[in-house]
Simulated assay, not measured.
Amino acid sequence: MRPIAFALIFGTVGASRVSFVPATTLSVLGMGFDHQVTPTPFSRFPSESEGTIRSDVYDLSLNSAGVAIEFATDAPEIYLNYTLASALQCYSMWHMPSTSVSGVDLYAFNDFSSERIMGEWLFVGHFGPPSTNFSGVIGNLGSVMKKYRVHLPLYNTVDEMEIGVDDGFTLEKSETLDLSQRVLWYGTSIAQGAVASRPGTAFTNVIRNSIGMDVVNLGFSGNCLMELDVAEWLVEVEGVSAVVVDCLPNMDASLVTSSTVSLVNKLRDAFGDQVPIVLAEGTTYGSAWISDDVKNDQEAKRSALTAEFNTLIESGMKNLFYVKGEDLGQGDLSTSPTVEGTHLTDIGHQYVADYYSSFLPTILQKYDKEN
């Protein structure tokens, strides 16, 4: 890919030489499998999963949802080149902006400024895709060594990415997370990131930035059905410290009843008793307060999941937890945090992230104390 640098958000591009490195040589977060075994550098399942799972799941696994690149640099300008597989997805969906479908945003760790609470990952700027081949720069960042994360597109496939700085500045791998301790999140379009305004505001990315633990986003839009052939690949992810099963929005009550126990047993057999497994109801639909059909459908699924959870507990299952939809802090119904009744606005993603950023460390510490 030929780099073509131009001013994107801040500053101007000078005449200095820019040196690029492949993003895969930096710290890659949110990947359950090494890029050497995946069909594209930031795909979420390995190439050999093709044909063993439904094609809809495999195709969605090519999307780079939840993947982030961490690095450190003292450069005042950061350049980014990336190539996308899908031209059709370079622009917005009817309910989701192109900034999150195919864009990349840049965050920095605030350990150098008193202007905001220190110790936070904070937004810096955005790289957006006018076409499948994108090149841009964010500048005016100062010349102090800082840690950065770029969050990759939620609904497109990145074929290639490289990050660059002007010659004379340092660009190096930053490893602030222990990748032997990760949360595995198996979910729906909501988990994949729909319909956040930017990748960094998708709740799995917010949780990672909040709790200091990597989150592997295995959200598959419309296709989280608790399938055992998908679970065969879930259990291949290494370094899993907790699993969240967040499939309810894609299922009906009968499928929940027929699938939950076998999926949880599969996960438990693979990961052992030491890994907490969370069954999650998911967020409440925006019109459930007025539509009996919507309310009854959601209540039926939740009741079915509760019943299967109780069955597992009664069978002696250890370290199994349950999250109710009402616990996800969706706020005042007059400002329902969904776009079209199902998928979350940024505020909705933040509500979910706030809850799990408190809940996940609690259940991990609970098990540590008991053992």
Rank of each mutant, 00 (worst) to 15 (best):
P41C: 12
P46K: 13
E48R: 11
E50S: 15
G51A: 11
G51Q: 10
G51V: 14
T52V: 13
T52R: 14
T52P: 00
I53Q: 11
I53K: 08
I53G: 07
S55F: 01
D56Q: 09
V57K: 05
V57H: 03
Y58Q: 06
D59K: 09
D59E: 06
N63K: 06
S64W: 00
S64D: 03
A65E: 02
A68P: 00
A68M: 10
I69M: 08
E70C: 08
F71P: 07
A72E: 15
A72Y: 00
P76E: 03
P76H: 05
L80H: 01
Y82Q: 03
T83G: 02
T83A: 10
A85D: 05
M93T: 11
H95K: 07
H95P: 00
H95Y: 07
P97I: 11
P97N: 15
G103I: 06
V104C: 10
V104A: 04
D105G: 09
D105A: 14
L106E: 09
L106Q: 06
F109C: 06
N110H: 12
F112S: 05
E115K: 15
E115H: 10
E115M: 05
R116D: 06
R116T: 10
R116N: 13
I117L: 12
M118R: 14
M118S: 13
G119C: 02
E120G: 07
L122C: 11
V124R: 05
V124L: 04
G125D: 07
G125P: 04
H126M: 14
F127S: 13
